[in-house]
């Protein structure tokens, strides 16, 4: 299951969805909003997604994880909306018979999600400006387009 959520994520409830008698390991990853990026103090983040395509591409990533690794279950949920420092932005959970596959698949899912799923992040900086991450063009700040 891959979902875009407008509501806060509940890791305990998400982890329960992975419960399975065949699973001997569960690896989870939590992506939190941190207070700095690229040397700049960050106050808050806005996430937005093209939800139908994000969920389709996310489902594809989870299917690929099932093909590549000997896992039992995999879930990824990404928040959208206005988030504050410390908020949970993304949660990935993978269950498997053994820990190796669970660690590897969890890493694969978060890496591919960051690279491929149409989700965007706007940072609000302490000095008052904002930037869409990864949208730099020539002459802009190295990692962002200022607006």
């Amino acid at each position: 299951m891959f979902c875009i959520s407008t509501e806060p994520l509940d890791p305990a409830a998400l982890q329960r969805t992975l419960a399975d008698a065949h699973a001997g390991a569960c690896v989870t990853f939590e992506g939190w909003v941190r207070d700095h990026n690229d040397g700049r103090p960050v106050l808050a983040l806005d996430y937005e997604a093209y939800a139908p395509l994000a969920e389709k591409e996310g489902a594809r990533i989870l299917a690929e994880a099932r093909e590549k690794f000997a896992i039992v279950g995999a879930v990824c949920i990404h928040r959208v909306g206005s988030l504050r420092i410390g908020d949970l932005a993304v949660w990935v959970g993978v269950s498997a018979a053994h820990r190796g596959a669970a660690f590897d698949a969890c890493r694969f899912v978060i890496d591919e999600t960051k690279a491929r799923v149409p989700v965007w992040k706007k940072e609000h900086y302490a000095v008052g400006d904002t930037a869409w991450i990864n949208c730099a063009t020539r002459g802009d700040h190295a990692a962002a387009v200022k607006s």
Partner: peptide, 28 residues
């Protein structure tokens, strides 16, 4: 993306389709 699927840039457009252009993504 056309009608909720990624497409190649040379994909022909047809009347009534929904087109979305995807800036560099930054999830996580």
């Amino acid at each position: 993306a056309v009608d909720e699927s990624f497409v190649a840039w040379d994909t022909s457009l047809r009347d009534g389709q929904t087109v979305v252009f995807i800036p560099p993504v930054a999830g996580g």
